[in-house]
Design a protein around this nucleic acid. Structure first.
Lengths: 129, 129
DNA sequence: TTAATTGCAAACCCTTTGCTTCATC
DNA sequence: GATGAAGCAAAGGGTTTGCAATTAA
Protein backbone atom coordinates (compact mmCIF):
# COMPACT_ATOMS: atom_id res chain seq x y z
CA UNK A 1 0.00 0.00 0.00
CA UNK A 2 1.14 3.55 -0.78
CA UNK A 3 2.37 5.52 2.17
CA UNK A 4 2.33 9.24 2.65
CA UNK A 5 5.88 10.17 3.48
CA UNK A 6 7.28 13.60 4.09
CA UNK A 7 9.58 13.15 1.11
CA UNK A 8 6.71 12.53 -1.23
CA UNK A 9 4.81 15.52 0.06
CA UNK A 10 7.76 17.88 -0.27
CA UNK A 11 8.55 16.79 -3.83
CA UNK A 12 4.99 17.25 -4.91
CA UNK A 13 4.76 20.65 -3.27
CA UNK A 14 7.87 21.85 -5.03
CA UNK A 15 6.39 21.08 -8.41
CA UNK A 16 2.93 22.44 -7.65
CA UNK A 17 4.16 25.59 -5.97
CA UNK A 18 6.88 26.82 -8.31
CA UNK A 19 5.47 25.58 -11.62
CA UNK A 20 8.78 26.30 -13.33
CA UNK A 21 9.42 22.93 -14.97
CA UNK A 22 12.33 21.80 -12.84
CA UNK A 23 14.62 18.88 -13.61
CA UNK A 24 15.04 16.06 -11.10
CA UNK A 25 18.29 17.65 -9.99
CA UNK A 26 16.62 21.00 -9.36
CA UNK A 27 13.83 19.36 -7.42
CA UNK A 28 16.42 17.52 -5.39
CA UNK A 29 18.29 20.72 -4.53
CA UNK A 30 15.09 22.40 -3.40
CA UNK A 31 13.94 19.38 -1.46
CA UNK A 32 17.24 19.32 0.39
CA UNK A 33 16.40 22.67 1.94
CA UNK A 34 13.44 20.98 3.62
CA UNK A 35 14.95 17.56 4.16
CA UNK A 36 18.74 17.80 4.11
CA UNK A 37 19.17 14.04 4.17
CA UNK A 38 17.06 13.38 1.08
CA UNK A 39 18.70 11.39 -1.67
CA UNK A 40 18.61 11.96 -5.43
CA UNK A 41 17.37 8.46 -6.10
CA UNK A 42 14.47 9.02 -3.76
CA UNK A 43 13.55 12.03 -5.83
CA UNK A 44 13.76 10.01 -9.04
CA UNK A 45 11.77 7.15 -7.61
CA UNK A 46 9.00 9.40 -6.41
CA UNK A 47 8.86 11.34 -9.64
CA UNK A 48 8.57 8.14 -11.67
CA UNK A 49 5.80 6.99 -9.41
CA UNK A 50 3.86 10.24 -9.65
CA UNK A 51 4.20 10.17 -13.43
CA UNK A 52 2.92 6.60 -13.49
CA UNK A 53 -0.03 7.48 -11.28
CA UNK A 54 -0.89 10.43 -13.48
CA UNK A 55 -0.16 13.20 -10.97
CA UNK A 56 2.69 14.64 -13.01
CA UNK A 57 3.91 14.72 -16.55
CA UNK A 58 7.48 14.24 -17.55
CA UNK A 59 8.72 15.94 -20.72
CA UNK A 60 11.88 16.87 -22.48
CA UNK A 61 13.03 19.95 -24.29
CA UNK A 62 14.40 18.65 -27.56
CA UNK A 63 18.17 18.81 -27.30
CA UNK A 64 18.38 18.85 -23.51
CA UNK A 65 18.36 15.15 -22.88
CA UNK A 66 16.93 15.24 -19.39
CA UNK A 67 13.51 15.20 -17.90
CA UNK A 68 11.53 18.12 -16.63
CA UNK A 69 8.40 17.83 -14.53
CA UNK A 70 5.11 19.62 -14.45
CA UNK A 71 1.62 19.14 -13.15
CA UNK A 72 -0.67 16.94 -15.23
CA UNK A 73 -3.12 19.49 -16.45
CA UNK A 74 -3.76 20.30 -20.08
CA UNK A 75 -1.50 23.09 -21.22
CA UNK A 76 1.36 23.63 -23.62
CA UNK A 77 4.87 24.99 -23.43
CA UNK A 78 6.93 27.71 -24.98
CA UNK A 79 10.69 27.32 -24.84
CA UNK A 80 12.77 30.46 -25.25
CA UNK A 81 15.90 29.70 -27.22
CA UNK A 82 17.59 32.78 -25.80
CA UNK A 83 17.06 32.56 -22.04
CA UNK A 84 16.04 28.90 -21.85
CA UNK A 85 12.96 29.67 -19.83
CA UNK A 86 9.90 27.50 -20.35
CA UNK A 87 6.57 29.27 -20.28
CA UNK A 88 3.20 27.66 -19.73
CA UNK A 89 0.71 28.25 -22.50
CA UNK A 90 -2.85 27.62 -21.30
CA UNK A 91 -4.86 25.39 -23.62
CA UNK A 92 -7.33 28.25 -23.99
CA UNK A 93 -4.71 30.29 -25.86
CA UNK A 94 -4.28 27.65 -28.54
CA UNK A 95 -6.75 26.51 -31.15
CA UNK A 96 -5.95 23.13 -32.58
CA UNK A 97 -7.75 20.75 -34.89
CA UNK A 98 -6.49 17.84 -36.90
CA UNK A 99 -7.64 15.42 -39.48
CA UNK A 100 -6.17 11.94 -39.35
CA UNK A 101 -7.20 8.46 -38.35
CA UNK A 102 -5.27 7.74 -35.19
CA UNK A 103 -6.91 8.01 -31.82
CA UNK A 104 -5.34 10.89 -29.93
CA UNK A 105 -5.29 10.68 -26.14
CA UNK A 106 -2.79 13.44 -25.42
CA UNK A 107 -1.27 16.32 -27.35
CA UNK A 108 2.07 17.82 -26.45
CA UNK A 109 3.09 21.07 -28.01
CA UNK A 110 6.41 22.77 -27.57
CA UNK A 111 6.64 26.17 -29.18
CA UNK A 112 10.18 27.36 -29.62
CA UNK A 113 11.33 30.87 -30.31
CA UNK A 114 12.13 34.11 -28.52
CA UNK A 115 10.09 35.11 -25.52
CA UNK A 116 8.72 38.63 -25.26
CA UNK A 117 11.13 39.52 -22.48
CA UNK A 118 14.17 38.54 -24.48
CA UNK A 119 12.77 40.26 -27.55
CA UNK A 120 12.32 43.50 -25.59
CA UNK A 121 15.82 43.17 -24.19
CA UNK A 122 17.27 42.72 -27.67
CA UNK A 123 15.52 45.85 -28.91
CA UNK A 124 17.00 47.89 -26.11
CA UNK A 125 20.42 46.58 -26.95
CA UNK A 126 19.98 47.40 -30.62
CA UNK A 127 19.03 50.98 -29.83
CA UNK A 128 22.01 51.55 -27.59
CA UNK A 129 24.51 50.78 -30.36
CA UNK B 1 36.01 23.72 -44.39
CA UNK B 2 33.32 21.06 -44.50
CA UNK B 3 34.21 17.94 -46.41
CA UNK B 4 31.92 15.55 -48.16
CA UNK B 5 32.79 12.17 -46.73
CA UNK B 6 31.21 8.87 -47.52
CA UNK B 7 30.16 8.59 -43.88
CA UNK B 8 28.27 11.82 -43.97
CA UNK B 9 26.54 10.90 -47.18
CA UNK B 10 25.46 7.48 -45.93
CA UNK B 11 24.09 8.84 -42.65
CA UNK B 12 22.09 11.50 -44.42
CA UNK B 13 20.74 9.01 -46.94
CA UNK B 14 19.57 6.66 -44.19
CA UNK B 15 17.48 9.40 -42.62
CA UNK B 16 16.09 10.75 -45.86
CA UNK B 17 15.32 7.37 -47.35
CA UNK B 18 13.64 5.51 -44.49
CA UNK B 19 11.94 8.44 -42.75
CA UNK B 20 11.21 6.26 -39.74
CA UNK B 21 12.66 8.45 -36.98
CA UNK B 22 15.65 6.31 -36.09
CA UNK B 23 17.81 6.72 -33.01
CA UNK B 24 21.55 7.25 -33.35
CA UNK B 25 22.06 3.59 -32.59
CA UNK B 26 19.67 2.51 -35.34
CA UNK B 27 21.34 4.81 -37.81
CA UNK B 28 24.67 3.37 -36.80
CA UNK B 29 23.52 -0.21 -37.36
CA UNK B 30 22.22 0.63 -40.81
CA UNK B 31 25.30 2.62 -41.72
CA UNK B 32 27.46 -0.34 -40.78
CA UNK B 33 25.91 -2.32 -43.61
CA UNK B 34 27.40 0.21 -46.00
CA UNK B 35 30.56 1.04 -44.10
CA UNK B 36 31.41 -1.79 -41.70
CA UNK B 37 34.20 0.18 -40.06
CA UNK B 38 32.03 3.16 -39.13
CA UNK B 39 32.02 4.14 -35.49
CA UNK B 40 29.11 5.20 -33.26
CA UNK B 41 30.81 8.44 -32.32
CA UNK B 42 31.19 9.34 -35.96
CA UNK B 43 27.46 8.91 -36.32
CA UNK B 44 26.80 11.10 -33.30
CA UNK B 45 29.23 13.74 -34.47
CA UNK B 46 27.69 13.92 -37.90
CA UNK B 47 24.16 13.98 -36.57
CA UNK B 48 24.99 16.86 -34.24
CA UNK B 49 26.54 18.71 -37.10
CA UNK B 50 23.56 18.22 -39.39
CA UNK B 51 21.22 19.36 -36.64
CA UNK B 52 23.34 22.46 -36.10
CA UNK B 53 23.38 23.24 -39.82
CA UNK B 54 19.62 22.82 -40.01
CA UNK B 55 19.54 19.74 -42.23
CA UNK B 56 17.96 17.56 -39.58
CA UNK B 57 15.89 17.91 -36.47
CA UNK B 58 16.53 16.02 -33.30
CA UNK B 59 13.62 15.26 -31.02
CA UNK B 60 12.68 13.06 -28.13
CA UNK B 61 9.63 11.03 -27.32
CA UNK B 62 8.79 12.02 -23.76
CA UNK B 63 9.87 9.16 -21.56
CA UNK B 64 12.37 7.61 -23.96
CA UNK B 65 15.42 9.61 -23.03
CA UNK B 66 17.22 9.33 -26.32
CA UNK B 67 17.29 11.27 -29.53
CA UNK B 68 15.52 10.46 -32.73
CA UNK B 69 16.27 12.11 -36.04
CA UNK B 70 14.17 13.31 -38.90
CA UNK B 71 14.42 15.64 -41.86
CA UNK B 72 13.98 19.32 -41.14
CA UNK B 73 10.69 19.94 -42.88
CA UNK B 74 7.56 21.19 -41.20
CA UNK B 75 5.47 18.31 -40.01
CA UNK B 76 4.31 16.82 -36.73
CA UNK B 77 4.43 13.44 -35.07
CA UNK B 78 2.03 10.89 -33.69
CA UNK B 79 3.42 8.40 -31.21
CA UNK B 80 1.50 5.18 -30.73
CA UNK B 81 1.59 4.13 -27.10
CA UNK B 82 0.82 0.54 -28.07
CA UNK B 83 3.30 -0.30 -30.83
CA UNK B 84 5.72 2.57 -30.28
CA UNK B 85 5.68 3.57 -33.93
CA UNK B 86 6.02 7.24 -34.76
CA UNK B 87 3.92 8.50 -37.63
CA UNK B 88 4.50 11.65 -39.60
CA UNK B 89 1.60 14.06 -39.59
CA UNK B 90 1.86 16.53 -42.46
CA UNK B 91 1.37 20.14 -41.44
CA UNK B 92 -1.56 20.28 -43.84
CA UNK B 93 -3.51 17.86 -41.63
CA UNK B 94 -3.29 20.14 -38.62
CA UNK B 95 -4.83 23.54 -38.08
CA UNK B 96 -3.18 25.54 -35.38
CA UNK B 97 -3.48 29.08 -34.16
CA UNK B 98 -2.40 30.68 -30.94
CA UNK B 99 -2.70 33.90 -29.10
CA UNK B 100 0.27 34.92 -26.97
CA UNK B 101 3.09 37.41 -27.06
CA UNK B 102 6.20 35.33 -27.62
CA UNK B 103 7.75 35.09 -31.04
CA UNK B 104 7.38 31.54 -32.31
CA UNK B 105 10.02 30.24 -34.71
CA UNK B 106 9.21 26.56 -34.56
CA UNK B 107 6.32 24.44 -33.32
CA UNK B 108 6.77 20.86 -32.28
CA UNK B 109 3.71 18.72 -31.76
CA UNK B 110 3.71 15.17 -30.50
CA UNK B 111 0.32 13.54 -30.53
CA UNK B 112 0.13 10.46 -28.36
CA UNK B 113 -2.49 7.76 -28.44
CA UNK B 114 -3.38 4.60 -30.28
CA UNK B 115 -2.69 4.35 -33.98
CA UNK B 116 -5.38 3.10 -36.34
CA UNK B 117 -3.52 -0.16 -36.95
CA UNK B 118 -3.34 -1.00 -33.27
CA UNK B 119 -6.94 0.07 -32.78
CA UNK B 120 -8.07 -2.29 -35.56
CA UNK B 121 -5.96 -5.06 -34.09
CA UNK B 122 -7.53 -4.58 -30.71
CA UNK B 123 -11.02 -4.78 -32.16
CA UNK B 124 -10.22 -8.09 -33.83
CA UNK B 125 -8.92 -9.42 -30.55
CA UNK B 126 -12.05 -8.30 -28.72
CA UNK B 127 -14.30 -10.07 -31.19
CA UNK B 128 -12.42 -13.33 -30.93
CA UNK B 129 -13.08 -13.66 -27.22
C1' DT C 1 50.32 19.12 -47.94
C1' DT C 2 47.23 20.20 -44.31
C1' DA C 3 43.15 20.66 -42.01
C1' DA C 4 38.87 18.30 -41.41
C1' DT C 5 37.20 13.84 -40.13
C1' DT C 6 37.51 9.24 -38.29
C1' DG C 7 38.12 5.40 -34.83
C1' DC C 8 38.89 4.22 -30.39
C1' DA C 9 38.56 4.47 -25.66
C1' DA C 10 37.57 6.89 -21.87
C1' DA C 11 34.77 10.21 -19.71
C1' DC C 12 30.22 12.23 -18.79
C1' DC C 13 25.63 13.00 -17.48
C1' DC C 14 21.31 11.54 -16.23
C1' DT C 15 18.65 7.80 -14.59
C1' DT C 16 17.82 3.27 -12.64
C1' DT C 17 18.58 -0.61 -9.51
C1' DG C 18 20.02 -3.87 -5.61
C1' DC C 19 20.33 -4.06 -1.11
C1' DT C 20 20.30 -2.72 3.70
C1' DT C 21 18.20 0.29 6.98
C1' DC C 22 14.35 3.03 8.39
C1' DA C 23 9.63 4.33 9.36
C1' DT C 24 4.68 4.28 8.36
C1' DC C 25 0.65 1.76 8.88
C1' DG D 1 6.02 -6.29 13.36
C1' DA D 2 5.15 -6.26 8.36
C1' DT D 3 6.11 -4.04 4.40
C1' DG D 4 6.59 0.04 1.63
C1' DA D 5 9.96 3.78 1.28
C1' DA D 6 14.60 5.88 1.88
C1' DG D 7 19.66 6.03 1.58
C1' DC D 8 23.69 4.59 -0.51
C1' DA D 9 26.55 3.00 -3.91
C1' DA D 10 27.13 0.86 -7.99
C1' DA D 11 25.58 -0.07 -12.59
C1' DG D 12 23.37 1.28 -16.95
C1' DG D 13 22.23 3.70 -21.18
C1' DG D 14 22.89 7.26 -24.19
C1' DT D 15 25.98 10.89 -25.60
C1' DT D 16 30.28 13.52 -25.78
C1' DT D 17 35.28 14.22 -26.02
C1' DG D 18 40.58 13.92 -26.42
C1' DC D 19 43.85 12.26 -29.23
C1' DA D 20 46.40 9.82 -32.71
C1' DA D 21 45.70 8.07 -37.35
C1' DT D 22 43.43 8.81 -41.68
C1' DT D 23 41.72 11.08 -45.78
C1' DA D 24 39.45 14.57 -48.75
C1' DA D 25 40.52 18.84 -50.80
Amino acid sequence: MKRLTRHRKVIKEIIYKYRDHPTAEEIYLRARMEIPSINLSTVYRNLKEMVASGDLIEFQVDGENKYRYDIAEEHYHFYCEVCGKIYDIPASKVKLSFDFEHHVKDTRIMFRGICSECAAQMEVEDESL
